[in-house]
């Protein structure tokens, strides 16, 4: 990152802070980056013709969904999102397809992690054994 960019960002940070916007939490990092990527994808001029990227994103989403399902961790809307992504691709809107597929892929990963984290049953503390 060059100095100019950094200064610009610092200013932006200060402006936002002065405006009273809350700024925080390390957890925030990952998601906004993803959002930014989505936005970039949506705005990029060649993206509407980028069918290959959309197909790849849908394939990645589908494999994440299947992986979650393999441990009984699939979420309700993941499959629907993938179907919508496929429809968007068919309709020629690959940017929308990528956005939906990325969301679905994230859900697949989270559902898998959620199930894996509970592989061994831990009885809740409100049950007094």
């Amino acid at each position: 990152m060059n100095m100019k960019k950094m200064t610009a960002m610092l200013c932006l940070g200060a402006i936002v802070a002065i405006a009273g916007q809350s700024v925080f939490a390390a957890e925030k990092q990952a998601a906004p980056k993803a959002e930014a990527a989505d936005k970039a994808a949506a705005k990029s001029p060649e993206s509407s013709g980028d069918n290959a990227a959309a197909e790849a994103a849908i394939a990645a989403a589908e494999s994440a969904r299947k992986k979650a399902a393999s441990v009984d961790g699939e979420w309700r809307d993941t499959g629907k999102m993938i179907k919508k992504a496929q429809a968007a691709l068919k309709a020629g809107d690959s940017a929308k397809a990528i956005k939906l597929a990325k969301k679905a892929e994230k859900q697949g990963k989270l559902g898998y992690e959620q199930a894996q984290a509970q592989q061994t049953l831990k009885m809740p503390s409100y049950l007094k054994y």
Partner: peptide, 19 residues
């Protein structure tokens, strides 16, 4: 907030989506 913003920027993990 300013301090936090500065710290985050310096840490290289700016996390502001919308102003």
């Amino acid at each position: 907030s300013i301090a936090a913003a500065a710290a985050i920027v310096l840490g290289g993990t700016l996390s502001i989506s919308t102003a």
